[in-house]
């Protein structure tokens, strides 16, 4: 059986194709203005990597903010549901899933079968998501990767006053004018996002082990801040940004089997 999951994120579209439960193709492309066309492009890329025609896919499940805009989909699943199922496949001992994407953050509590027990979401505000780090790294004139790396060089905790990304940009500029070292600013930014994510996750209750998924997992500065804020180990699966798409593909398989 061949199924696919497509995760229509705010910044990137991720596709995973499964054949009898094994990943045979995947792709990650930027989300264009025409979401339907971008979705098609993502599916085509993953399909050619898998060496199959799209018509060979028996069920496609879409997730993510733009999941409604996938013409090829057979069904939909929420980001929470897809993230939970994808995580438990990769990290069976995970009980809390922290999912941080470009424009959204989520805390999900799951049982051993990947069933969602409780969740909390932060959406529609850039302050608790990847865009925050992105805007701040732009203000510091570096890439998000460099930004994450230099933040590790700091051992200082500077609190950021501004919550809003727009106001925080001005605050970062003032910190630069005040000759604050860039690593300290970068750490302050990572700490700020981590503290917002942590208080959101606390609402569902933190049960170990904690898994971190979503594109922001690639920011090592954020990961380090999150570990400090949660005060526990955080497990990041391989390809953390594909977990939602993987979960959707697994769910596609279940739906196909159960009719």
């Amino acid at each position: 059986m061949i199924t696919a999951g497509i995760d229509m994120g705010a910044k990137h579209i991720k596709v995973v194709i499964l054949k009898d439960g094994e990943v045979i193709g995947k792709s990650k492309i930027s989300t264009g203005f025409d979401q339907g066309a971008s979705a098609r492009k993502g599916l085509d890329e993953a399909g050619s990597q898998a060496g199959i025609e799209l018509s060979a896919i028996e069920h496609i499940t879409a997730t993510g903010a733009g999941r409604k805009s996938v013409p090829e989909k057979n069904s939909e699943v929420t980001e929470v549901g897809a993230g939970a199922v994808g995580t438990i496949r990769l990290i069976p001992e995970a009980r809390t899933v922290v999912d941080v994407g470009a424009e959204e953050g989520r805390g999900i509590k799951i049982d051993g079968a990947g069933k969602v027990i409780d969740f909390a979401v932060n959406e529609k505000c850039a302050a608790g998501a990847g865009s925050f780090a992105e805007s701040m790294s732009r203000a510091l004139e570096m890439t998000v990767r460099e930004f994450g790396e230099i933040s590790l060089k700091s051992e200082k905790t500077i609190p950021m006053n501004a919550q809003c990304t727009v106001f925080a940009e001005s605050e970062v500029v003032s910190l630069l004018h005040a000759q604050t070292p860039k690593p300290d600013i970068a750490r302050a930014v990572c700490d700020a996002i981590a503290s917002r994510i942590t208080s959101m996750v606390r609402r569902v209750g933190i049960e170990q082990k904690v898994a971190l998924i979503g594109g922001v997992s690639h920011n090592i500065g954020f990961v380090s801040s999150l570990k400090r804020a949660l005060n526990c180990e955080v497990i990041i699966p391989e390809d953390p940004d594909y977990v939602g798409a993987l979960g959707a593909a697994i769910i596609a398989g279940e739906r196909k089997t159960n009719g």
């Binding site: 424009e103 805007s135 990304t165």
Partner: peptide
């Protein structure tokens, strides 16, 4: 999107 200036800005660019 009336919710966030950052998101409204990316929406405006699109």
């Amino acid at each position: 999107s009336s919710t966030c200036v950052v998101f409204a800005k990316s929406e405006a660019m699109a």
